[in-house]
């Protein structure tokens, strides 16, 4: 069971969290502004990286907040967790929130 540092509550057991998929996927605004292909990419296409990945978690059985995390998918080690709206701490990936 992973030990996850909630940016609001501190280190807590994985049982309290739910996983939320890849982070920093911006919802196009307004949605009509993008092509059908771009919209489909927003809906369905994910990098599913082997290695360091920015992803969303929710401390659903805790403070109930969504937040972002940098996790190495090959080792399960977390490099950092950070609040929604904050940039990726390692400067990687896209800059969107």
């Amino acid at each position: 069971m992973l030990l996850i540092h909630c940016p609001y509550c501190g280190p807590r057991p994985e049982l309290e969290f739910s996983y939320g998929g890849e982070a920093h996927i911006a919802r196009p605004s307004p949605p009509e502004s993008v092509s059908a292909d771009d919209w489909v990419a927003f809906l369905y296409l994910r990098a599913n990286r082997r290695g360091l990945q920015a992803e969303r978690w929710r401390h659903v059985r805790g403070c109930a907040r969504f937040f972002n995390a940098l996790r190495d998918t090959t080792t399960d080690q977390f490099l950092a967790t950070y609040r929604c709206g904050e940039p990726r701490p390692d400067g990687g990936g896209s800059a969107s929130p």
Binding site: S18, G20, R27, R56, R58, V60, R65, F66, C84, G85
Partner: peptide, 13 residues
Amino acid sequence: LQLMEDYRQSEWP
């Protein structure tokens, strides 16, 4: 509730 919270917190804070 999870879906609503997701959009409330992540998309429209």
